[in-house]
Design a protein around this nucleic acid. Structure first.
Length: 869
DNA sequence: GGTAAGCGT
DNA sequence: TAATACGCTTACC
């Protein structure tokens, strides 16, 4: 999509205005000037809840800036000098690794959605138009932009700026179709090209260009269909008799050609051809050819950037848009020249917040970014400043990463206020249904469900919960989301929860590897012990309804349908479906896992074939036709003091996931049991429920503890505090890695978790050498960290491979200079401007090995050491 | 693991 | 008439 960012810095700091962007220098005669646009937006926004919240957010940014400035004041010359040396050392390394050998192209369709709409409805051609709705616009044409009408601007404000604006509704179906046509062309130049959404793509044309050098002319010859050529280009042709515009070829050979019907290379047939155009062999020529072919095929124009890396290519494509292209030649000086005066806001990934923070330090252009590199390294997190450094040196990714796996999938919806629990639950279910469909389309299952809520004051909250087994079905997701929603509703009671947006997201997908092993059924798992037949272990479609609250199962209509129906019934009891409201904790246990697993169990029971099986824990043959019995046996094996005796577990083909499913869900209470154990321990250790600074998190935490503690205590013997209470139905995994509360661990290890100190103590404690016996392969493992030990056990469990612990624990790698550093979202080193740094259009494609991944909590694993001792 | 927040359409 | 989205990511605790 076109760049609609705002490089302007008005005196007004309101987020709304900053976000919408003000008119750039194209504002002119027929349009509005910046001042006028500002004024109109301000008048339309002032006093609204939205605006109030924007101001609040803006204040928060200001506070961050203030904090940063205070920090800056404390920096001594000596520190700065030291930082300078350190950074410059890195600069040298980076310079040495600079790679100018690739030719990366960024293709960007001009005002894509709007252009498609204009193409399909010529009446719109000369008018200012925008695509979207009265509440939000996705893009606008260039005519509308002169009035300050931008993407991500609400339609009603756009109308105030430009009363004649035509707003066309979105039609993704159509855009997808056009996008596909474009992609077919791009694939010819780079079969591995990387699409970024519908209207953008990166290509690595290095190879193409090499081949192209040897191509005969007829492979670079195209027939011109003037009908599909822009007016501008047509004029050029008729005036000069040659196609000699910046748009396409700088020195093409043009032929008169009377052939009525010809095929071009894409197989498209053009009628009424008049001219032929031949493109050269250079990068510029190749890209002109691409753009030419795109226009011929779709009647839409594209802009392009050619550069040695993706970041530069992207910024480059912005330079001459619309319908233009730009190249940065592959020389260091050319790169630095391009970067020199470039406003940092033009860099993909530097958004309004980062821009503002940097501006407070007097940094507006990329060369200033370089000049201040030492200071930045002291003020920002490592990931951030290193990213800044890359930017200021014009470094970026030179290869197009293969499609990374997406990390999350979500759906959310805005509506006018909803404040009854009943409606909220219905809506929640509807979102879950939608999400489940999307997930299943891509065959994804995730362990974490996140609920997002925006209240009527535009304050956003997210609440997440991770379950033990991946979920993807509506009921599975809803079971978790319902619990989260219930907690939020309770947290404001007796007041109603007044929301204007709800979203549900699933993340924590299984990696390809994990998927593979999860797909192996319990059958193969048990077979590893003794050949057995377990038919229908994974029923095609679990009978979920039977395990769902009847009130919900019977009301599957659309949320709005139901709402309407409810109104008609004049049902004014907001807790008509009280069961929903009250059962949210049961929701967890009747979740997902248990639904499916209970069915497996049922089917197994029905099958009656299971007569002899080998216990995966003690490895003894057990005969039974009843799964409950089997489970009981395994439970006993697990729950006893026999972990050390589990050495005999097969090295082959153990599916940890299935093991867990099989074992743990023979009783539905498993998950709750675990939760209860954790909470019990919390209470037992006298640790407060939460030391979180976040007040809402705090109250929520308390709420949870309170609710759980009110439940009848199970008649279970408490383990000593430093031993782990293993739930009766624990899976192997739980036995090996009983989940602990990080706060408790923190206490045990005499540290708190939120300070820099913690990371250093973390490193030191991981350096201790200890010998642990792997409960799977029974071999002694000398390890410097629990993380690596756990990895070993994982590998053993998953593959039956005994792997040398060669990997080093990287938890201690965290640099210490970030103690007071300012975090800037979006500047993740791992991404390195391969694509826009954060919030890429293309969903979930980063494969970055971010610090956060490394820092994955070691917390819950400390105690295992004691356990094995 | 949970949460807020940044970013880009 | 009133009215400011959605989907993804990462950093931090």
């Amino acid at each position: 999509m076109d760049n609609v960012k705002n490089a302007d810095n008005s005196s007004y700091n309101g987020g709304a205005l900053l976000r919408m962007g003000l008119n750039d220098n194209k504002a002119g005669m027929q349009g509005l000037d910046k001042e006028k646009i500002n004024k109109i937006i301000m008048e339309a926004s002032k006093g609204s809840k939205f605006y109030e919240n924007e101001l609040k957010k803006d204040q928060q940014v200001n506070q961050r800036i203030e904090k940063m400035m205070q920090l800056k004041e404390k920096i001594t010359q000596q520190q700065l000098l030291k930082a300078r040396l350190r950074v410059d050392k890195l600069v040298m390394e980076l310079e040495q690794s600079r790679n100018l050998s690739c030719t990366i192209v960024h293709i960007d369709m001009d005002a894509f959605y709007a252009a498609v709409e204009m193409r399909d409805n010529p009446e719109l051609k000369e008018k200012p138009i925008a695509v979207g709705s009265m509440s939000m616009l996705s893009t606008s044409n260039y005519h509308a932009r002169r009035f300050g009408v931008r993407a991500a601007m609400p339609g009603f404000i756009a109308k105030k700026l430009c009363p004649h604006l035509t707003i066309v509704p979105l039609n993704f179906e159509k855009y997808r179709k056009v996008s596909k046509e474009v992609k077919e062309i791009l694939a010819e130049y780079d079969p591995h090209f990387m699409p970024m959404g519908l209207d953008e793509a990166y290509l690595n044309v290095t190879e193409h260009l090499e081949e192209r050098l040897h191509w005969p002319e007829d492979k670079r010859r195209y027939f011109l269909n003037t009908e599909n050529t822009t007016e501008k280009n047509k004029e050029d042709i008729s005036i000069s008799g040659r196609l000699n515009i910046d748009g396409y070829s700088s020195s093409p050979e043009l032929f008169e050609d009377g052939t009525p019907v010809m095929d071009d290379h894409s197989g498209q047939r053009y009628q009424s051809l008049k001219n032929v155009v031949v493109f050269g062999t250079s990068a510029e020529e190749a890209v002109k050819e691409i753009r030419f072919r795109i226009e011929q095929k779709t009647q839409l124009t594209a802009s392009a950037g050619i550069a040695p890396n993706t970041m530069l290519a992207k910024m480059c494509s912005d330079r001459n848009k619309p319908n233009g292209q730009c190249r940065i030649s592959p020389e260091r000086q050319a790169v630095l020249d391009f970067i020199k005066d470039l406003p940092i806001r033009k860099v993909p990934g530097i958004g309004k917040v980062t821009e503002k923070m940097l501006k407070a330090l007097g940094i507006v252009t990329c060369s200033e970014l370089y000049q201040q590199r030492a200071l930045l390294s002291l003020l920002f997190s490592e990931a951030s400043w290193r990213s800044f450094l890359d930017i200021s040196l014009g470094l970026g990714s030179t290869h197009l990463e293969k499609d990374g796996e997406r990390k999350s999938m979500s759906t959310e919806r805005t509506f006018s206020e909803i404040n009854t629990a009943e409606d909220q639950y219905s809506l929640c279910r509807e979102l879950c249904r939608e999400l489940a469909q999307d997930l299943q389309k891509e065959g994804l299952k995730g362990k974490t469900v996140t609920l997002k809520l925006k209240n009527v004051n535009f304050e956003v909250k997210t609440r997440a919960s991770t379950v033990l087994s991946s979920v993807s079905a509506e009921d599975e997701i809803f079971a978790v989301a319902k619990m989260l929603l219930g907690t939020e509703i309770d947290s404001v009671a007796p007041h109603p929860l007044r929301i204007r947006l709800m979203g549900v997201r699933v993340s924590g997908f299984l990696s390809e590897e994990e998927k593979k092993y999860q797909q192996k059924s319990i059958k193969s798992f048990l077979k590893s012990g003794k050949e057995l037949d377990f038919p229908k272990l994974q029923p095609e479609k679990p009978n979920q309804e039977s395990l769902t609250e009847s009130s919900e199962a019977s009301s599957r209509g659309s949320f709005f349908d139901k709402k309407r129906a409810a109104r008609q019934l004049n049902c004014n009891n907001p807790f008509a479906n009280e069961s929903v409201g009250k059962q949210h904790f049961c929701g967890v246990k009747s979740s997902a896992n248990s639904v499916e697993e209970a069915n497996k169990v049922t089917n197994l029971q029905k099958s009656n074939i299971c007569e002899v099986f080998t216990c995966p824990v003690c490895f003894e043959e057990q005969s039974s036709s009843n799964l409950e019995e089997i489970n009981r046996h395994i439970d006993e094996c697990l729950a006893g003091s026999l972990i050390k005796d589990t050495a005999e577990i097969s090295k082959n083909d153990i599916s940890r996931e299935n093991t867990f499913n099989f074992l743990s869900h023979s009783k539905n209470e498993n998950i709750d049991d675990c939760r209860e154990n954790i909470t019990d321990q919390l209470a037992g250790s006298g640790q407060s429920a939460s030391t979180s600074e976040n007040s809402s998190g705090n109250s929520r935490e308390k709420k949870f503890t309170q609710i759980v503690s009110e439940r009848p205590q199970k008649n279970r013997e408490k383990q000593p505090c430093d031993l782990i209470d293993i739930p009766r139905n624990a899976s192997i995994k739980q036995c090996l890695f009983p989940k602990r509360n990080s706060q408790e661990d923190a206490k045990q290890f005499g540290r708190t978790d939120h300070t820099e100190e913690s990371s250093s103590s973390r490193s030191s404690e991981t350096k201790e050498d200890s010998v642990l016996v792997c409960p799977v392969c029974n071999s002694e493992q000398k390890t410097t960290s629990l993380m690596s030990f756990n990895r070993h056990v994982d590998v053993c469990l998953n593959k039956g491979l005994i792997q040398e612990l060669t990997e080093k624990d990287d938890c201690s790698a965290k640099t210490s200079d970030t103690e007071n550093s300012i975090r800037v979202g979006g500047l993740n080193r791992g991404q390195q401007c391969t694509k826009p740094l954060q919030g890429t259009k293309r969903s979930g494609l980063t494969t970055s090995q971010s610090a956060s991944k490394k820092a994955k909590s070691i917390n819950s694993k400390h105690t295992i050491e004691m356990f094995f001792k």
